[in-house]
Amino acid sequence: MKLPFSYILNLLLTLLTTNPHFPNPNPCTGDCWTHEPGLISRPSDNQYFRFATGSGIHIHSAPSLSGPWKSVGEALSNGSVIDHQGRRNLWAPDVHYDTSTNMYHMYYTVSTIGSRDSVIGLASSPDMAPESWTDHGAVFRSTNNDRYNAVDSNWVRIHGKPYLNFGSSWDGLFQVPLSLSLMKDLKEGTGGLATHAVQDALSHLASNATGHHRIEAPFLFQHRRWYYLLLSSGRADASEKNLPAQGEENRIMVCRSKNGRGEFVDKDGKSCRESGGTTLLASHDAIFGPGGQGVIEDKEYGLVLYYHYADRSLGLSTEQYRFGWNVLRWEDDWPVV
């Protein structure tokens, strides 16, 4: 394949300006394709499950983070029960285990590219096996008149209460508390949850005033006395024919807050609602555009950053994305890969 001159020039510029402190991803064997991954391990057998954007949410499984990973099917092979455009091509799975229901819960997005007419849905499973998922329908919605976009959800518990982080472009990333009736309905097996987010308690977490406000995929986790907000910033639609300017491709950034509900700042103290954010991982060597990130607490490695990325030697399309992971270490209470 003959690569265009602009691609070769951009590659050379990136290699010349590579930040050498970024490590390459740890090894991955087997089927390492992924897109906007959600990652969780099952305590009963220490098996890892990796969920990915596309169709009814792709599921891969492996005995360790490094693999060998294999495709095991889809969570919702017939698509979502939500009657909405995009219901057969679901995005951005976020999976956690809830001890109060003894179930695994998966939040997912139903939407189309460039639209704020979006829905966050919820499904549950006793063991994460394909076809074991019960789809409960919509939890939170946005319209084209809203300042936010109900996509890329991330469930978190703060001081014992459940919240959803979400957002993409426009006014950025937000957080909304989940109503107490949500868990009651899940315990009772109620289907069709309708809206279970408390919209009037919306919190604005982060925004990017530059360019096309490209910011997405919030992921919040706690370490010691801080809550850390990870986000993807930059262009996520790169390809050999549509290459972003050098440095404008996707990267993973971090902000932190003591209360987890707002007041997030970067390492320089700049508010993350005013385009702040400290780069945690960016393009380097053959690694291009890391994003769609999350953190898992692993028994062997401790806190691990996981994400998707493109390998320049393979291509930049989403069909060629790879699963990446790096162990986090800490410097002055800031995560470093």
Rank of each mutant, 00 (worst) to 15 (best):
M1L: 13
F5E: 15
F5K: 15
S6C: 09
L15R: 09
L15F: 09
F22H: 10
P27F: 06
D31R: 12
W33V: 10
W33H: 13
G38F: 02
L39Q: 08
S41C: 07
S44P: 07
S44R: 08
Y48C: 14
F51E: 00
A52I: 05
T53L: 01
S55A: 02
I59S: 03
I59Q: 11
H60R: 10
P63C: 10
S66I: 14
S71A: 15
G73F: 03
E74S: 02
N78M: 04
S80I: 07
V81T: 14
V81M: 14
R87T: 09
W91D: 03
S100W: 00
M106A: 08
Y107H: 04
V110T: 11
S111N: 07
T112V: 13
S115A: 07
I120N: 00
A129C: 05
H136Q: 10
H136F: 07
V139G: 04
F140E: 00
S142E: 04
N144R: 12
Y148W: 13
N149F: 09
A150H: 02
V156N: 01
I158K: 02
K161W: 00
P162A: 00
Y163N: 09
F174G: 01
L182D: 05
L182F: 14
L182H: 10
K184Y: 15
E188A: 15
G191C: 06
L193F: 05
A194T: 09
A201Y: 12
L202W: 14
S203Y: 11
H204P: 12
T210Q: 14
Q222R: 15
Q222L: 09
R224E: 12
R225F: 08
W226D: 02
L231D: 05
S233G: 06
D237W: 00
N242Q: 13
N242I: 08
N250F: 02
N250R: 04
I252W: 01
V254E: 03
S257P: 02
N259L: 00
N259E: 00
R261I: 11
F264H: 11
V265Y: 02
S275A: 03
S283F: 04
F288Y: 15
G294L: 06
V304E: 09
Y307S: 01
D311P: 05
R312L: 14
S317K: 03
T318K: 07
T318L: 03
V337S: 07
